[in-house]
Nucleic acid binder design. Structure first.
Length: 326
DNA sequence: TTCCAGGTAGTCG
DNA sequence: CGACTACCTGGA
């Protein structure tokens, strides 16, 4: 099945800048690969794998999104479109957000730097959980590579043209993986060649000490925490529930709630957001991270997630981030 | 070579 | 509670 369609400006509220949204380094999903002018990713529509190619021509954030979809199943255009609206935050009313930002002199300048930047939602909640855990890592490049490796080694392969795409493996699969080389070796009873390379384990994907977290988190998702139910909880309850998962602290929890479930009131505070908030709102005073989080949640309310996204991108582009380096 | 970043979990008082 | 450090990996 192949479908092509457009999503026009009258179908979303306010501007969208597709490449900015995809490339703004929002955590919880490796960025979509651009090839032949189209961003590509294998997503799931009604539980069925579907390859999406999406582009926005020109640099006007009112321009329509052009979509090509391919699947071995017969999927309805409406279902695919609905999923894309969800992933790219097209249901968010950005004009209303900008009214909110204009009311705060510290936030007003972010608008021009971020026109059309939207929250980019994860397309798979379990993948979001695991990649958020591995994103507690110093380099986006590194955890991106880890997630890619995990998908290639243990996900299901789908080929629509020459290059293959992979789903993210299930909790059942990840829960039983060997943590590192040694464990993989110990599980092998057969005689292996002298120079056999043990790379069928989690640590071989470069996740470091997070391998243990990933395995235990997968076990927990299998038999203790229902990821579906989390999205239906109130934000506070969901936050406290998800904190019980190994490898999930306050920052990672907020990333999952924001990017995985779309809780706009989540305010993930990493080192950089902390520095930015201290500089803008506390005259450079060193405020502990938990205080920054409650400050953000109280002050920015339902827009906290967007404020975090806009502040970070603004700081990066305006040179503020560079000046905040210790 | 050694050092360091990044958030979480663990330990200590 | 707050302050501290170990954890891994790869880049400086």
């Amino acid at each position: 099945m192949k479908k092509e369609f457009k999503i026009r400006a009258n179908e979303f509220k306010g501007p969208i800048n597709l490449s900015l949204t995809i490339n703004s380094g929002q955590t919880s999903q490796p960025s979509w690969i651009k090839k032949d002018g189209y961003f590509r990713e294998l997503i799931s529509v009604d539980g069925k794998p579907c390859l999406i190619k999406i582009t926005q021509k020109g640099d006007n954030p009112e321009n329509p999104l052009e979509v090509m979809a391919q699947s071995i199943n017969d999927l309805k255009v409406d279902a695919i479109k609905g999923q894309i609206m969800e992933i790219f935050g097209l249901n968010h009313d950005l004009d209303k957000l900008y009214d909110f930002l204009r009311n705060d002199p510290k936030l007003e300048p972010t608008i021009n730097f971020c026109k059309g930047l939207r929250l980019f939602k994860a397309h798979d909640i379990f993948e979001c959980l695991i990649s958020s855990i591995s994103s507690a890592n110093c380099s986006i490049l590194r955890w991106n590579r880890s997630i890619r490796d995990i998908k290639r080694k243990w996900g299901d392969e789908y080929k629509f043209s020459r290059e293959p795409f992979y789903t993210f493996p299930s909790p059942q699969i990840l829960a039983t993986l060997p943590e590192h080389d040694l464990e993989e070796m110990q599980r092998c009873e057969d005689d292996l060649p002298e120079n056999f390379v043990f790379d069928n384990n989690l640590q071989a994907c470069g996740v470091g000490y997070r391998a243990k977290y990933i395995i235990n988190a997968s076990r927990m998702v299998q038999d203790e925490i229902n990821l579906e139910k989390l999205g239906k909880m109130k934000y506070d309850k969901a936050f406290n529930t998800i904190l019980q998962i190994p490898g999930v602290g306050p920052k990672v929890a907020d990333c999952i709630l924001l990017y995985g479930y779309g809780f706009g009131e989540a305010f993930p505070v990493d080192l950089w957001i902390k520095r930015i908030i201290c500089k803008l709102y506390f005259d450079g005073e060193d405020i502990p991270v938990p205080k920054i989080r409650s400050f953000g949640i109280e002050r920015f309310g339902e827009y906290a997630g967007y404020v975090q996204l806009y502040l970070f991108h603004y700081a990066r582009k305006s040179g503020l981030l560079e000046r905040l380096k210790p």
